[in-house]
Simulated scan of single mutants.
Amino acid sequence: MRSLRDFGSGVGFFLRGVGWVARNGRWWLFGLIPAVIAFAVYVVALILLGTNAMSLAEFMTPFADSWSWAQAFRVTVAIALFLGGLALAVVTFAAITLTIGEPFYEKLSAKVDGVEEADGQPWWRTLPRSVKDSLVTLMFVLMFTVPLFFLGFVPVLGQTVVPVLGAAVSGFFLTVELSTLGMERRGLLRKDRFRLLRGNLPVTLGFGVAVFLLFMVPLVAVVAMPAAVAGAALMVRERLAP
């Protein structure tokens, strides 16, 4: 029961982030700028993937040339490639948007955190470290999502357990990215951030899964990004690293 309450608490932090940006419309618009830029890049990339998915499927499955059902199999592979690319886009959207818009989201997160001016080094000096941390996180994401991608082809398992695990993994790493600003403000290194998130796993998953599911809806990721940053700042301040 406590785990369920904590999961609900994580969802609640995101909803509180929505409430915060709703009351502070200027900051919401401020946070949309980098999200719109990142979204445009992802739209182009997904269009290219969608238009070339069948060619990629044919390239990846030369062994199926002699199969009577090769076309149907390759269509399935092409669909899986696109859905896999879409899921990867959802997971990495926060990291790319935060990297592009670090000066924007640092100010937004600090405002939610009750800090008028963010302490620490200027954003251009912390950018290399942020990129490195995002690449490390991406490596962990791929370690989990690539096996899940192939497990998705397993009958029954791929349509039941795998989507749930995928949402949990994606949600966890979304929370990793979104909580970075608030935790770095408190001087926490990457290993300390991961430790805190694992130690508060139900809250972490509640927040991250809610964000992940919303980010799967076209355009919602852009609109909800400032709220996700605000909610993460509240969660770090009140629950993870008060």
Rank of each mutant, 00 (worst) to 15 (best):
M1C: 13
D6L: 15
D6C: 12
F7E: 13
G8W: 04
V11H: 03
V11F: 00
V11C: 15
G12A: 15
F13M: 14
G17N: 02
V18R: 14
G19T: 04
W20H: 03
A22W: 15
A22Q: 11
N24G: 08
R26W: 01
W28K: 10
L29N: 07
G31H: 12
L32F: 04
I33D: 00
A35L: 11
V36E: 08
A38F: 00
A38M: 07
A40L: 14
A40M: 12
V41L: 11
V41I: 12
Y42F: 09
V43M: 01
V43A: 08
L48S: 08
G50Y: 09
N52R: 15
A53R: 08
M54N: 02
L56G: 01
L56Y: 12
A57Y: 03
A57H: 07
A57K: 02
E58Y: 00
F59H: 09
M60T: 01
P62W: 04
P62I: 12
F63G: 13
A64V: 09
A64L: 08
D65K: 11
S66A: 14
W67M: 11
Q71L: 05
F73H: 00
T76N: 04
T76H: 09
V77F: 07
A78V: 09
A78E: 01
A80G: 13
L81I: 10
L83G: 03
G84N: 10
G84S: 03
G85E: 15
L88N: 15
F93M: 05
L98N: 02
I100D: 02
I100P: 09
G101V: 07
E102F: 06
Y105C: 05
E106N: 06
L108P: 09
A110Y: 00
D113F: 14
G114V: 04
E116G: 15
E117T: 13
E117L: 14
E117C: 04
Q121V: 02
P122V: 13
W124G: 12
R125F: 08
P128R: 10
D133C: 06
F140N: 08
L142P: 06
F144K: 09
V146P: 05
F150M: 03
L151K: 00
F153K: 02
P155S: 03
V156M: 08
L157E: 10
A167Y: 06
A168H: 08
V169A: 07
F172D: 12
L174E: 09
L181R: 15
R186L: 14
L188E: 11
L189W: 11
R190W: 13
R190A: 05
R195C: 07
L197D: 00
N200D: 04
V203E: 10
F207W: 02
V209K: 00
A210I: 03
L219P: 10
L219N: 02
A221K: 09
V222A: 03
A224Q: 10
M225Q: 11
A228V: 01
A230I: 12
G231I: 01
A232R: 08
A232V: 09
V236F: 14
R237M: 06
R239T: 03
L240Q: 14
A241F: 03
